[in-house]
């Protein structure tokens, strides 16, 4: 049984269909990456999984149990198992609490009174490679990288089975970015964590994710193992994203596939294939609505698929 099973998840705010049916699953210990442009719905997906965003339709099963639309009372014990790392590392820490209080707050909320909080704080800080005297610091005294690690420590406090990480390396310098990714990789191996990671940095995806899903306008357009997507992606949008990946080499031959125009408004979704108007490979047949097809574990929603 999959640890997390998301089926046809739909979210709309008024007339704006942010998610138009998203399905994927994550196995225990697996890292799944969601990639796509700003506004493609990545953050809404993980917020909906965590019960922080509404989802009017579909299902989210965690360990086989339906949690979409569950009451806060029913969700609270589950929050031990599903932890969230928010996008803004400093903004997600209360400015008036010390690091020690921040990372041990989950124990209080879960009513685990038997724990020695000082000891736990020390253990957690050690786990994310921060010195133990950091427990007395306030968020404004932390650098971006340190605040991230505090976010990781807090997410790990209750030994979750699943971590939802929203842009975990955004805003970090490259020399520190590797440190955080190594930490996540290491913890995943040691604790058997499963992760859903959102990022628009494809260079990062390659090193952390087992499988990845590419989102466009609130839908998955392609899904597969990271290795397969990088080697033999078939959706033109995926190819555009991959080709936009830059390399630190002035002589790199970049065969760029330019995207035409801007992402369309969610209020006026295009007819037929929603990527059609921006797609360099679209043909007249793309006026039909493409269906999701899966072949050897490689999912695709495209009427003009590319071959390698």
């Amino acid at each position: 049984m999959s640890l997390l099973q998301v089926q046809d998840l739909k979210t709309s705010y008024g007339k704006v269909n942010v998610l138009a049916g998203v399905s994927f699953q994550v196995e225990p210990g697996e890292t799944y990456a969601l990639v796509g442009e700003s506004g493609s719905g990545k953050t809404t997906v993980i917020r909906a999984i965590a019960g922080l965003a509404p989802a009017q339709h579909g299902s989210v099963k965690f360990n086989g149990m339906e949690i979409r639309g569950a009451s806060e009372r029913k969700l609270r014990p589950l929050r031990k198992d599903i932890a969230m790392m928010f996008q803004d590392p400093v903004g997600s820490l209360s400015p008036r609490l010390t690091v020690g209080r921040l990372i041990t707050e989950p124990y209080k909320i879960q009513g685990m009174k038997d724990r020695d909080l000082n000891l736990e704080a020390k253990r957690l800080l050690e786990m994310v490679n921060l010195p133990s005297h950091f427990a007395d610091r306030f968020p404004y005294q932390l650098s971006g990288g340190q605040a991230r690690r505090v976010g990781v420590a807090r997410a790990l406090a209750l030994e979750p089975k699943l971590i939802l990480a929203d842009e975990p390396t955004a805003g970090l310098d490259v020399s520190v970015q590797g440190e955080l990714l190594n930490l996540l990789n290491d913890l995943r191996e040691r604790l058997g964590l499963a992760m859903v990671i959102i990022t628009h940095n494809l260079n990062v995806v390659r090193h952390v994710a087992d499988r990845m899903g590419i989102m466009y306008l609130g839908r998955l357009v392609e899904e597969g193992t990271t290795e397969e997507i990088f080697r033999a992606s078939r959706h033109p949008y995926t190819r555009c994203l991959l080709s936009a990946n830059s390399e630190p080499d002035p002589d790199a031959r970049l065969e760029r596939i330019a995207l035409k125009g801007e992402p369309p408004s969610l209020l006026t979704r295009p007819h037929g294939c929603e990527f059609r108007e921006r797609c360099p490979f679209a043909h007249s047949g793309c006026e039909r609505v493409p269906v999701w097809e899966v072949e050897n574990g490689h999912g695709l929603r495209c009427l003009a698929p590319l071959t390698s």
């Binding site: 490259v174 020399s175 520190v176 970015q177 590797g178 440190e179 990714l181 190594n182 990789n185 940095n201 260079n203 990062v204 390659r206 090193h207 990271t226 290795e227 990946n245 830059s246 390399e247 630190p248 080499d249 002035p250 002589d251």
Partner: peptide
């Protein structure tokens, strides 16, 4: 980029994940 002569420049280029084509278990850091 081709012939960096300061250790910081060298390390910075090494750290860029775009530089590393194969999946790495451990990424370089400074």
């Amino acid at each position: 980029f081709g012939n960096p002569k300061h250790p910081y420049t060298r390390r910075l280029i090494d750290c860029d994940p775009g530089h590393i084509k194969e999946r790495a278990r451990v990424l370089p850091t400074i």
